[in-house]
Design a binder for these strands. Structure first.
Lengths: 224, 224
DNA sequence: ACTTCGGTTATGGCA
DNA sequence: TGCCATAGCCGAAGT
């Protein structure tokens, strides 16, 4: 990892187009060819490029121009003056981060404990293909004798409601099957719940610490 | 901006939960309190935290522990050994990046040149409120005498199609008005076009260099 | 190579 | 402050 602190300006063209005015910032050049220009603010670099094919270094008017290129993008950094430069030796192949409480793990947990959502639910399949994209979980309701499409989210927004309705819609249209729409999530906001109520989508709240606790049945918010 | 290169491990808990095994990486501490742990790969830090409230430094078993805290999150970095450390002086208030060809500018351009989409279109309003969120542009079709809801995207996906259909749907339901659905975009992929055809949504292609060129009428891909 | 989708998405704007 | 939609979203997995 090479770090250059310099008074620089930059131009990017590719996915979008930006002009970065002259200021003192730091450039990070990683071993894999990722280029980041950082200022003193926030998580994101102000300009950047990943997966560069090659780069060209030129001296124009006593200023160093760095040009990073790949098939679709171009990032030019003009170094008006270099203030300092460091070469940092990090481990190239560092051990991967371990993620807990991901949506994938939540999905797996719910599919293996589906009766915690509703005692009448029986698991049918995960990632069931509807023709309009896969539903997270497809289940069977012993009580109503309908199938149930369950969309799992860590944080449910209005989009989740629309998403599950699309599945229902496509199944109705193509196979003339009625399917009960359900969104199960740790977090719901009010506008999402209001929309769900209007659209008759059942929302089931999953406790924050689902990986330790059990899903409580009476947390069900709406009935069909 | 302070940079520490160290043999470190880290634990994050807040929005998610992660464990980062021991390895040599670099820590970037910004003036605004953003903390980034970077390895030699990619755009994203492996661990990070923004908007910290305060931090605690402790020495436990000859190892320095850095604990960054805000109301909802906690990031602990264990420095097994510090390799090097640098203090970089950047400009705190650097001039903002200038973005061109944003969706907002595209929207403005189309609203001022609406007849380029279709010679019969007349502009009514931008960000027209439907009750299910605002439509980008509402227009009038002199030919069919219908109103037209236009969703503008730089890159249209299937979501854009569903989005514009929601507006149509809500207007039909609440005001019993038929509105023609249109998605205008620089890029459409095939699955989006297929969906649009099925759903009778008109797709209009905007040239890549719309900020220099004119929108050509005959690029319209589907009619109602 | 392209598409789809989750993310500790981040970030800006607006209610 | 919280909620919403955009982003040069990124990155990963599947096709």
């Amino acid at each position: 990892m090479r770090i250059i602190v310099a008074d620089l300006s930059a131009n990017y063209e590719g996915r979008g187009k930006t002009e970065l005015p002259k200021a003192i910032r730091s450039i990070i050049i990683k071993e894999d060819g990722s280029i980041l220009i950082h200022n003193e603010k926030g998580f994101k670099p102000v300009n950047y490029m990943t997966k560069i094919d090659h780069y060209i270094e030129e001296d124009i008017d006593n200023e160093k121009h760095l040009l990073f290129i790949n098939r679709k993008e171009k990032l030019e950094i003009i170094l008006h003056s270099i203030i300092e430069e460091h070469n940092l030796k990090l481990e190239i192949d560092d051990p991967a981060i371990i993620r807990e409480q991901t949506e994938d793990l939540l999905q797996l947990y719910v599919s293996q404990n589906i009766e915690k959502l509703d005692k009448n639910y029986q698991f049918i399949s995960r990632e069931f293909e509807t023709g309009f994209g896969p539903v997270d979980i497809l289940a069977y309701n012993k009580n109503t004798k309908n199938k149930v499409a369950i969309e799992i989210k860590r944080n449910a927004t209005m989009n989740a409601i629309y998403q599950v309705l699309r599945y229902i819609d496509s199944m109705k249209k193509y196979k003339d099957q009625y399917i009960e729409p359900v969104v199960a999530s740790i977090k719901f906001n009010d506008s999402t719940l209001r929309l769900a109520e209007r659209k008759k989508v059942k929302c089931i709240k999953i406790p924050e610490n689902w990986d330790k606790e059990k899903i409580i049945n009476k947390t069900t918010l709406f009935d069909l």
